[in-house]
């Protein structure tokens, strides 16, 4: 590859473009986006029902831990995923008890769930594995090429040469959109998030819908977390999630609470991340990589300021619903 020696701008841009238009770049973008997609869609569901679930970071971490343990001792990666999802559901119920049944402040409840879950994840891991010099690992998920489709030039390696979980993640997007927009369940869920009192007078059980959304989000957080320990790193480390849950909170805002837009936001994040890695390793630009890590958060805040007027969060977000208080 020709190194760019002068800092002439046109030269840099052409080299950046060269990095972008590579099969590896697009494949990496999809790979990075997939685990975030699970958690982002999960968060979207709970926010659409009117509950900001800040338990995301902790539940992902705990899911990564329980999923890893299950896979390690059973030898089945899919069992690990199932256990991670179950873990998430349990803490989704706890979140529901705090914010829905008791109507406590959503952000404080969410942070406390994150705290408890992270504590339990680290505590549990130490109990099970002690302090090994070499972290125990599992045989991670293998790449599953879709027969025939994977042989299509360009598109094949980009789209059809991934881990099974990646396909699942991307299939969840149309599924989530269908559930949310085309089913009576989705209509009720959205009404619960916009105007719970109207929903209640139409006979929708507000609390039950919020519980369902929180259980769904918990399950998806758990799977998203286990993706890291079972597919990406094939081991559980204390930094396995390291703030990616908070990134998903940002992606939901950027995706304006819509499954398709959330997927685009996740892919954009994947693109920035993949580009950042490539530019770093090829030495084209000399920006500190932390600037790239900062980017999704800056973009989110900026987007919120720009979009705040026309694309608002679900109207009942953060507001507890109490039947007797109107």
């Amino acid at each position: 590859m020709n190194q760019c020696t002068n800092t002439h701008e046109a030269c840099t841009i052409s080299e950046v473009l060269e990095q972008v238009f590579q099969v590896g770049f697009f494949a990496a973008m999809i790979r990075v986006a997939a685990p975030l997609l699970f958690a982002t869609l999960g968060e979207m569901f709970s926010e659409r029902a009117g509950v900001l679930n800040l338990g995301i970071e902790g539940i992902m971490l705990l899911g990564a831990m329980t999923g890893f343990c299950a896979a390690y001792f059973s030898g089945s990666l899919w069992l690990g995923i199932a256990v991670a999802a179950t873990t998430g559901i349990i803490f989704g119920v706890l979140m529901g008890f705090l914010t829905v049944t008791l109507g406590l402040s959503q952000h404080v409840s969410g942070l406390s769930v994150t705290m408890v879950c992270s504590g339990l994840a680290f505590y549990g891991y130490r109990l099970v594995f002690g302090q090994p010099s070499q972290p125990p690992n599992v045989k991670a998920f293998e790449v599953l090429s879709v027969p025939a489709l994977a042989d299509i030039p360009l598109l094949g390696p980009v789209l059809f040469n991934h881990l099974a979980l990646v396909y699942v993640g991307f299939l969840l997007v149309p599924l989530a959109a269908f559930l949310l927009y085309r089913t009576p369940w989705g209509l009720s869920l959205r009404t619960v998030g916009e105007n719970p009192y109207a929903a209640a007078s139409a006979g929708v059980r507000v609390a039950w819908y919020r519980y369902q959304a929180l259980m769904m989000s918990g399950a998806l957080f758990g799977i998203g977390g286990a993706y890291f320990s079972l597919a990406q790193f094939n081991a559980f480390t204390f930094g396995v999630i390291s703030g990616r849950g908070w990134v998903c909170i940002a992606l939901v805002v950027l995706g304006r609470w819509d499954p398709w837009r959330c997927a685009v936001a996740a892919l954009l994040f994947g693109a920035v991340d993949a580009l950042q890695l490539r530019l770093q390793s090829s030495g084209i630009i000399d920006l500190p990589y932390q600037i790239f890590l900062m980017l999704p958060f800056v973009v989110t805040v900026a987007a919120m300021a720009v979009l705040a007027r026309n694309a608002r969060a679900p109207a009942a977000l953060l507001i507890p619903y109490r039947r007797e208080e109107r």
Binding site: L52, I249, F297, V301, R309
Partner: peptide, 11 residues
Amino acid sequence: YRVDDVVATLM
């Protein structure tokens, strides 16, 4: 701009 303070301060 009526931006939600929970998410903004967190970000």
